[in-house]
Each structure stands twice: as structure tokens, then as C-alpha cells.
Design a protein around this nucleic acid. Structure first.
Lengths: 111, 111
DNA sequence: GGACCTACCTTGCGTCGCAAGGTACCGTGT
DNA sequence: ACACGGTACCTTGCGACGCAAGGTAGGTCC
């Protein structure tokens, strides 16, 4: 049944990316590296670049090209108003979802 | 970008089903109905039946046919030893994953 | 025997994670 | 000048899975 966390990422990863961009504008490779530090969310370029394109087409992210101090130019992403409200919507949805799963599968903690 | 919770279910739904079966043996239609009560996890037959087949083929569930007091026979599912340990594994993975997402997207609660 | 409920399962489609492959810019060393 | 390695972008092809829709059949009631 494949890697366990692969499935968990679905539907969550995109909002983690939105949240990272919310803090400050970021570029693709930076996002890949930062996510690499999170064992549960590590995702390669082949995941992130298509995801960023989708978010751009959905109107949740906008991008601008910025020259790098050393190396090829970078595409920086920033949150749009729609992206911000989508993220807000996810935050409340996530809390509710997380509680449901906690209750059903039971975490061992006393509910 | 489709229904929000559709993506969230991915990778979680199967373990919620395992957890339901852990409590006591259950049959397909019962599982569909019970999940229907959970707004975040509601899934139709077209989702659950293939999922149960996968879990059976993975060796996490076993099944036996039982006559219904009224209606067609039911296929009851029970947890195997492998299924039980997969569920245990998920429980710890889930806690870790949940915390990572909470930290990254921020729930508004004070960390 | 017709209508309806219950219960099972399959088909076809779309989305998305991901490995692998591809292009191009830049700096450094020779 | 040229090769090499690092950075940064993107695409292709595949597989997994949620899901709507469609299909079969047993049971009950009138």
C-alpha cells in the first residue's frame, strides 16, 4: 500500500505551501528544500513544481521573476487575496477534520 | 481544486475503516452508513467497496459471508494481525503528521 | 408478480504524488 | 575559451485512489 505518508500529504501539502508563502515570498527550490526538513512532508521537485503551477492557475498564488545574486533567475511566489482566504478556509476545515480522525482512530490520548 | 475534504480523506480513510472494524466486525453497507454520519469522512459505495477489496488483498482485513436476518447476505470484515499492526503504525505516524501540519499552517491556537 | 429496499461489485474518469529526464543560467578552475 | 558543477526551472509517464454512475441479485410486502 505504498509509503504511508504519501497519501497523507494529499490535500494537505498544497496548504502547507500556501502557509509557507504567506510568511514571505518564496521560490520553488527554496520551498523544496524547506519541506525537505519536515520528515512528514518531504516532497521532490516533481511534486512541487506542478503543484505551484496548479496554485497559480487556481489564482491562489501569483509569481514574479527575480534575478538571483548568483545563479539562474528565480520565480518568486506570493499569496493572492483568494489564496489567503482559501488558506483561512482550510485552517478551520483542518481542525475539524483532525478532530474527527483523532476520535475515530483514537490516538491513545484520553479524549 | 475540487472538494476540500476529498483530498484530506486520502491516506486517512482506509485507517478510519480499519479502526471501525477493530471495534467489531462490520459489513460494507454498514460502514458506508456510519461514515455518512461523519461530515468530514462521508464516502459513497464507489469509494468504500473498492477500498475494502484493497484492504483484503493487502491482508489487513479478512471477510466472511453471513446471512442477514432480512435481506441479501452480508460480507463481514474483521481485522487480521497484520491489519492490527498496520493500524498501530498509522496511529503514531498520524500524531506526528498532525503536529507537523499544525505547526506549519498554524491553527490559530498558541503553539 | 411488481415495487422497493438492501447489499454487493465494476467501469471510467479525473486528480495528484513522484521518479526520471530535460533545459538553461551562472560561477570557478584550467 | 571551455569544461564542469551547482542552481533553478519545467515536463513526461505512470500508478494510486476517490467518486459518480451503472449493474446484479436476494429479500419483503402488498
Amino acid at each position: 500500500m505504498g509509503e504511508l505518508s504519501t497519501g497523507l500529504r494529499r490535500g494537505t501539502l498544497e496548504f502547507c505551501v500556501l502557509a509557507m508563502v504567506e510568511v514571505e515570498d518564496r521560490y520553488g527550490n527554496e520551498i523544496v528544500r524547506r519541506l525537505g526538513d519536515e520528515p512528514n512532508l518531504a516532497a521532490g521537485e516533481g511534486t512541487i513544481y506542478p503543484l505551484l503551477s496548479r496554485l497559480r492557475r487556481s489564482g491562489w498564488l501569483e509569481s514574479k521573476w527575480v534575478e538571483s545574486p548568483s545563479g539562474p533567475p528565480r520565480r518568486y511566489y506570493g499569496l493572492t487575496a483568494a489564496g489567503r482566504s482559501a488558506l483561512e478556509h482550510f485552517r478551520s476545515e483542518w481542525v475539524s477534520f483532525r478532530q474527527t480522525v483523532d476520535r475515530l482512530v483514537g490516538t491513545g490520548e484520553t479524549a
